[in-house]
């Protein structure tokens, strides 16, 4: 899978986003960082085909995304949205199973649902009604749904919008590691909107977004420190923990 954006731009009301130019290859893990309102989620939603392009092109494997049917796209691309409301009280098993609603291969559905739930640390939530779950639990069910969707795909793309925002710190790392493992096993690319800089530094590449434009596209290492300081208007310090791993902390 190769995703290319060529001068892709978008207009929402009076606000102009883009033009965006970048390429995502199979297995790459890219984090999008930026202040709120900068247009991070907009990039995700643009690639998820929730918006119409104003100009430019989005290519998947060299073919314009508009030429794909929804069903074709769903075989290679999963989307974990920020927060959603479900109209009726569905059972969590069904929500996860819906990840495979257009899957051509319907065998072992229940096994896949079970394993996807296990992977997303949500197996204890099976059999409950979605609407009665807390925000963090709902996020885990949605993650399991995306896992179920891309379970037997390879070289796909996962678009995730603040996957861990509603979770407590312990679970945040656990789930990010899970997304990472799931994607690596299948060589899926991951494009994620993140808030935590340290989470982002575990990725391969960073896209910094400011006022609807990508101002920096760089490898995720400490060379990006100065740009991150400028982006958020804060000062960051580079420290090492007891294991010798580096962490960035904000200093006053």
């Amino acid at each position: 899978m190769k995703l290319q954006l060529h001068h892709a731009s978008l207009q929402l009301g009076k606000k102009l986003f883009g033009p965006f130019d970048f390429t995502i290859k199979s297995g790459e893990r890219i984090a999008i960082l930026g202040k709120s309102g900068a247009g991070k989620s907009t990039i995700i939603r643009l690639i998820a085909r929730e918006y119409q392009l104003k100009s430019g092109l989005i290519l998947i494997n060299g073919t314009s995304m508009d030429r794909y049917s929804s069903a074709q796209l769903s075989q290679i691309r999963g989307v974990l949205p920020q927060n959603t409301q479900i109209a009726f009280g569905l059972v969590t098993d069904l929500v996860i199973e819906l990840g495979r609603v257009t899957a051509p291969n319907k065998v072992n559905q229940e096994t896949i649902v079970m394993q996807a739930a296990q992977m997303a640390c949500a197996e204890h939530l099976l059999g409950r009604t979605f609407n009665t779950l807390s925000g963090g639990e709902q996020a885990r069910i949605h993650l399991a749904r995306v896992f179920a969707q891309l379970w037997d795909a390879n070289h796909g793309l996962m678009l995730v919008d603040e996957p861990v925002a509603a979770l407590d710190p312990g679970l945040q790392y656990q789930l990010l590691d899970t997304i990472d493992r799931f994607a690596r096993e299948r060589n899926h690319a991951v494009l994620a909107v993140l808030h935590d800089i340290n989470h982002a530094l575990d990725f391969d590449r960073l896209l910094l977004v400011e006022q609807g434009r990508i101002t920096l596209d760089c490898p995720a290492d400490h060379h990006a420190l100065e740009d991150l300081e400028r982006l958020y208007g804060i000062r960051l310090e580079h420290l090492y923990d007891s294991q010798g791993d580096s962490v960035l902390v904000q200093v006053r």
């Binding site: 998820a48 929730e50 929804s70 769903s74 959603t84 929500v95 990840g99």
Partner: peptide, 17 residues
Amino acid sequence: NALTLGENIANHLGVDV
């Protein structure tokens, strides 16, 4: 059922809404 999750999610899941 997929539409219950919302129009955008149904589209992501491959349903031609």
